[in-house]
Design a protein around this nucleic acid. Structure first.
Length: 935
RNA sequence: GCCCAGAUGGCGGAAUUGGUAGACGCGCUGGUCUCAAACACCAGUGUCUUCACUGGCAUGCCGGUUCGACUCCGGCUCUGGGUACCA
């Protein structure tokens, strides 16, 4: 009797759903374990085979932990706000909520087919008003708090207001805007409401701020970098410019240090932690104010230009200064003679995105303003340039140029023929390239001549501080996060404007639901789509914020909502939060390293400061699964067969060099092991129904290329097709067997037969060829026990180190060995079924019941205990390597494994025997199972 | 450009702490079963040399450390991810 996977899998999925087998409740008798997948954006293309990769792995861990006695929380939901649904709405006029709903329905159907043990009663959707009510609520808390550096946490703005009323901002050590003035209590109390609110915005953790966006005048909208290709809009190909706009910002920089420190307490890959550290980019250096030479500048020019440098010691080597082309000082610093050049340059830079600017650093560009600053250390006049390698958003938007010590400055100086002054005696070949060494003693360097790096830096910093023109400073690369999107399909910001200042709506008025609008484009006046909503005013009077929140808002706290998904009073009850605490295992793609994972950590820390959550870090352990790439197949059409009335002729891959051909993408679903299903191909496209083929060895072999998965390349593999063909268990097994989870890999189904065979082999351990159930309740033999316990040991070890692919090999070996032993003993098979169940839950459940157990209990069975004494080997080999070449083994019985030194002596004897008594030069015993002999 | 990864047979990959490279699977070859095929089972399969034994060469490229390197260090090449409004 063949195993009927279709019937069996369907039966158990229905059983699990009807019996709510995986519904989870708080249970204080068991240790808890929280396994979380990064929830998907429900795209219109449906689930593809890349999605389940991580979900299968996390499901395996969820099931494994249940076997280990944990109370497992394993939920799933949808990050359902986003750009694609909105773009679809713009094209079709259909409300994004409808598209999103349809897509989610498809996703759920597809996910349920693969047999995941999710507790679906906890499902969340970020676009659901019951959910985003709490996203808005958290936003409001951010508005109501500031970051106190002394307390090192967020505190209520109300307490700041109290302090201001008593003593102004004297003694207040808070994170705030750079331009915050000093004020006394009297001054504060003398301010009107508007002035006070304006000042408070400089402290709030979320606040409206000027930031630069990609503005497309033709479309009247802001574009994502993703929507820009080659400097023009992807839609329509219109020019894009950089424009400053009022945008909500999140003061994530307040948490910069805690975001760095927290990395030490989580079990994430070093690579990912390093990426976050680099993203935050904490650097220690100094700020220096250069006095502007007043003789050439325009009215209202600044007195000083401040720069940040990590190499203040190189200050005597400064030969120019560069400010960002969009810097606010530019008009004041530009002399009439230079105005034309500067204007042209600024215009050119405005047409480029930040990414372009950073990518093309080989080409040196810039423009001289005509003005100068004075180097405070040697009073030299230093020319001020504009250059696009300086970004307005980082530091002060101005840098000092030291050509001898920095390659980019060197390139710039060479291009504009500026002096290159050596500053250290150890610098070499600076006429050829920059030398950024910190070695040697300073030369041409005034007060630090003859000193070394450390001493010089200290002296210079002290000097700056004494003169009040600079100080030691810690600078972060991290910028405050822009929190506004000029889009429709996102959470409305629960704020309105009065006299140009933002105010929050009442908490009791949440959720602030998305209004209905006629179309999803910006208004004619360039306002965001919400500007189209009729009568959309707070209390019918005050303009609401028209931007919505970014995609990352809803995903920055969702793991808490799963803990108590239906709660209408709180985002989750304290009871639930304090039971589940934090995510024990978080699984998702590494492409979220500096986006989602950083924002989520930020919000989590904020919620902790408010005393609402217990843990500083929300995800204790993180695994990144690699992206599954598409694997396209090609057929090669002979060019001479193209034309009216001709039958298309295709030549097999191996023979295509003999013809002139055009490669054509062919649907990967009609290709198996690169062999084309010729009949299916003729049916695939009507213009190919009369196709002729030039075969090799009677087969048509297709070409292969790795590309992104996409509909137009016919390389999207839908899991539904595979589930239908080979079953969910085979798919689960195969996706895990494909390779290490973390590695990116192209999808191919070439080896899926092996996984399918495994399932059939397991079935044959239970049924003979005639369909008779052959399992007997007999005592297992030592050989059978050894096979089983080798498997238990390896499966447990590998799952504990998240090596999902090697577990499959181990299970295959075990089943093969039991097959060879013709083992049909209940005691052995029962344990094997438990071992398999995380990978292949459907067949495991079926076999579990066949062995006489209760249905639906296998997930909560006990993971088999490994018995080491069953694995005793007869002999234990010490390999001997001689001069690293000749090898031999000395064998010992396992119960008398010798100490390493003893093994060395024995090896010495063995070798002496070979050498007729001559002693080897050296015998090296390493604390491993190996002895090395040098002759 | 900058930051972070990766590269091992015909293919996917294994090698857990520097210790017998190629487990396991696919594919291929031969065999058993069959009228035949499919399925299943058995055997072989890095490469060069050889009837065979054996021996040489092999973990992207160049160099280094070590008795010993897929593994550690330095320098490249190529591929993937991120680069702040894709999610």
């Amino acid at each position: 009797m063949e195993y009927n996977f279709k019937e069996t899998e369907q039966k158990w999925r229905k059983f699990w759903e009807e019996n709510q087998t995986y519904k989870t409740e708080i249970n204080h008798d068991k240790p808890k374990y929280y396994v979380l997948d990064m929830f998907p954006y429900p795209s219109g293309a449906g689930l593809h085979v890349g999605h389940p990769l991580g979900y299968i792995a996390s499901d395996i861990i969820a099931r494994y932990k249940r076997l280990k006695g944990f109370n497992v929380l394993h939920p799933m939901g949808f990050d359902s706000f986003g750009l694609p649904a909105e773009q679809y709405a713009i094209q079709t006029g259909q409300h994004p909520a409808i598209t999103t709903e349809e897509n989610i329905t498809t996703y759920i159907r597809q996910l349920k087919q693969i047999g995941f043990s999710y507790d679906w009663s906890r499902e969340v959707r970020t676009s659901d008003a019951k959910y985003y009510k709490w996203t808005q609520w958290i936003f409001m808390q951010l508005f109501k708090h500031y970051y106190d550096k002394d307390a090192n946490k967020a505190l209520p703005i109300a307490s700041l207001v109290e302090r201001f009323a008593v003593s102004g901002n004297k003694g207040v050590n808070a994170v705030c805007d750079e331009d915050t003035p000093n004020f006394t209590a009297e001054e504060w109390n003398g301010m009107n409401e508007q002035e006070q609110q304006t000042l408070l915005l400089k402290f709030r953790l979320t606040f409206p701020d000027d930031s630069v966006v990609n503005w497309c005048p033709a479309l009247g909208t802001v574009l994502a970098n993703d929507e820009i290709k080659d400097g023009v809009s992807e839609r329509g190909g219109y020019p894009v410019e950089q424009k400053k706009m009022k945008q909500w910002a999140m003061r994530i920089t307040a948490y910069a240090d805690r975001l760095i420190d927290g990395l030490n307490e989580v079990d994430w890959s070093d690579a990912l932690k390093e990426q976050q550290r680099n993203w935050i980019g904490r650097s220690t250096g100094a700020s220096v104010k250069f006095k502007v030479d007043a003789s050439t500048v325009q009215e209202n020019a600044p007195e000083f230009i401040e720069v940040f440098t990590t190499r203040v010691d190189t200050i005597y080597g400064v030969s120019f200064m560069v400010i960002a082309p969009e810097h606010e000082y530019v008009p004041f610093l530009t002399t009439p003679e230079q105005k034309a050049t500067v204007d042209e340059y600024v215009k050119w830079v405005a047409s480029r995105t930040e990414l372009d600017r950073m990518s093309e650093v080989k080409k040196v560009t810039g423009a001289f303003t005509g003005s100068y600053v004075i180097n405070p250390f040697n009073d030299e006049k230093v020319p001020i340039f504009l250059a696009d390698y300086v970004l307005a958003g980082y530091g002060t938007g101005a840098v000092m140029g030291v050509p001898s010590g920095d390659q980019r400055d060197w390139n710039f100086a060479t291009h504009f023929d500026l002096p290159i002054v050596p500053i250290l005696d150890a610098q070499k070949d600076i006429d050829q390239q920059a030398d950024n060494t910190k070695e040697g003693k300073y030369i041409n360097s005034g007060i630090i001549d003859g000193m070394e790096y450390k001493e010089a830096t200290a002296i210079l910093t002290k000097w700056l501080e004494e003169k009040g023109i600079g100080k030691g400073k810690i600078q972060y690369r991290l910028r405050n996060a822009v929190f506004s999107r000029q889009r429709y399909w996102g959470e409305p910001v629960p704020a309105y404007f009065k006299d140009g200042l933002p105010y929050l709506i009442e908490e009791s008025e949440l959720p602030l639901e998305l209004p209905v609008i006629d179309k999803y484009l910006p208004t004619e006046t360039g306002e965001p789509p919400l500007g189209r909503a009729e009568g959309w005013k707070y209390k019918g009077e005050y303009e609401y914020e028209l931007s919505t929140m970014p995609g990352w808002a809803g995903s920055s706290w969702y793991w808490y909502r799963y803990m108590d998904a239906q709660n209408e009073q709180e985002f989750a009850s304290q009871e639930a939060i304090n039971y589940w605490k934090a995510v024990d295992l978080y699984l998702g793609g590494s492409e979220h390293a500096t986006g989602h994972l950083l924002y989520s950590r930020f919000w989590n820390k904020f919620l902790k400061d408010l005393g609402l959550v217990p843990e500083e870090e929300f995800a204790k352990k993180l695994i990144n699964q690699g992206m599954i790439q598409g694997r396209s197949n090609f057929v090669y059409r002979v060019k001479s067969s193209v034309g009216e009335g001709k039958n298309p002729v295709f030549v097999s891959f191996g023979l295509k060099e003999q013809y002139e051909t055009t490669p054509i993408h062919v649907d990967v679903n009609i290709v198996s092991n690169e062999v084309l299903d010729v009949t299916a191909f003729k049916n695939w496209r009507s213009d190919f129904e009369n196709a002729e083929f030039i075969l090799e060895d009677g087969k048509y072999i297709c070409g292969v290329e790795v590309e992104k998965m996409s509909k137009s390349k016919y390389n999207v593999v839908n899991p539904d097709v595979l589930v239908d063909k080979v079953g969910a268990d085979t798919l689960r097994l195969y996706e895990m067997f494909l390779g290490p989870l973390e590695q990116a890999k192209p999808w191919n189904t070439n080896g899926i037969d092996g996984s399918f065979r495994f399932i059939k082999k397991v079935w044959r351990l239970f049924y003979d060829d005639l369909g008779n159930f052959k399992v007997k309740d007999e005592a297992p033999t030592p050989a059978e026990l050894k096979v089983l316990h080798t498997c238990i040991k390896k499966v447990e070890e590998d799952l504990e180190r998240y090596s999902f692919n090697t577990v499959v090999s181990t299970l295959m070996i075990c089943v093969n060995d039991l097959g060879s032993l013709k083992c049909a003993k209940k005691a052995i098979l029962q344990e094997l079924v438990i071992l398999m169940s995380p990978y292949t839950p459907h067949i495991a459940e079926e076999l579990w019941v066949l062995l006489g157990n209760e249905a639906g209990t296998i997930s909560y069975a006990t993971f088999p205990k490994f018995n080491a004494s069953l694995l005793v080997e007869a002999n234990f080999d010490y390999p001997i390597s001689i001069n690293g070449k000749v090898r031999a083994n000395i064998s010992f019985p396992t119960d008398s494994i010798p100490a390493d030194i003893e093994a060395g002596v024995l090896a010495n004897e063995v070798v002496q025997k070979w050498l007729d008594g001559k002693a080897p030069k050296k015998v090296i015993v390493v604390p491993k199972r190996i002895v090395n002999v040098v002759l």
